[in-house]
C-alpha cells in the first residue's frame, strides 16, 4: 500500500464512528519502488489529499523533516518539495503493517501490500 492510497482510507463505515480519519498507520515492512518523477501528477493530486494525513504518513515513514507543517502556497514552483512528496506518496510501498481506527481501535491488517478492510456484518 502506497502512502498516497493511505490518504484516502477511513473507518467511517464502522457503526458509531464520526470521522474515522486519519487512520493510525504502523509499518512492519516496506519497500521503496523507484518511479519516474512526474510533477504534474503530484501537483494535480495535492488538492485531493488531506495534509494531516500526509504529515502523519511522513512521521511514520521517518520523513517528517521533509514535509512542512502546512502546505506552502507556491508548491507548483517548489520542485524540491514536489520531489519529496513524490518519494513519500508514490515510492514507499507498505508490504506488512496495520491501519487502526482512531475512534474504536479496530485494526485492519496489511498483508503482501493489501489492506484487509472487510467489516463484519455486526460492525456496520
Amino acid at each position: 500500500m502506497r502512502l498516497s492510497t493511505y490518504n484516502f482510507l477511513t473507518s467511517k463505515a464502522i457503526k458509531g464512528v464520526k470521522v474515522g480519519f486519519p487512520l493510525k498507520l504502523t509499518i512492519a515492512k516496506q519497500d521503496v519502488v523507484e518511479s519516474e518523477f512526474n510533477p504534474t501528477f503530484i501537483e494535480r493530486l495535492l488538492p485531493r489529499l488531506d495534509w494531516s494525513g500526509i504529515r502523519l504518513a511522513a512521521e511514520v515513514a521517518g520523513l517528517n523533516d521533509d514535509i512542512p507543517a502546512e502546505l506552502p502556497a507556491n508548491v507548483a514552483e517548489n520542485e524540491e518539495l514536489l520531489k519529496k512528496l513524490h518519494h513519500l506518496l508514490l515510492e514507499i510501498d507498505v508490504l506488512e503493517g496495520q491501519l487502526e481506527c482512531p475512534e474504536t481501535g479496530r485494526v485492519f491488517p496489511i498483508t503482501d501490500g493489501i489492506p484487509n478492510m472487510l467489516l463484519n456484518e455486526d460492525e456496520v
Binding site: R2, F8, D50, G113, L118, L119
Partner: peptide
C-alpha cells in the same frame, strides 16, 4: 492479489484494497 499482479506484469501500478464497494474511502474523491 490478481489485480496487483496484473498491473505489475504490465509495467504499471494499481492499489488493491480488500473491502466492500466504496465503504472505506474518503468522500467525494
Amino acid at each position: 492479489k490478481a489485480t496487483k499482479k496484473t498491473a505489475n506484469h504490465n509495467g504499471t501500478f494499481v492499489e488493491s484494497i480488500n473491502c466492500n464497494l466504496v465503504d472505506l474511502l474518503r468522500k467525494k474523491t
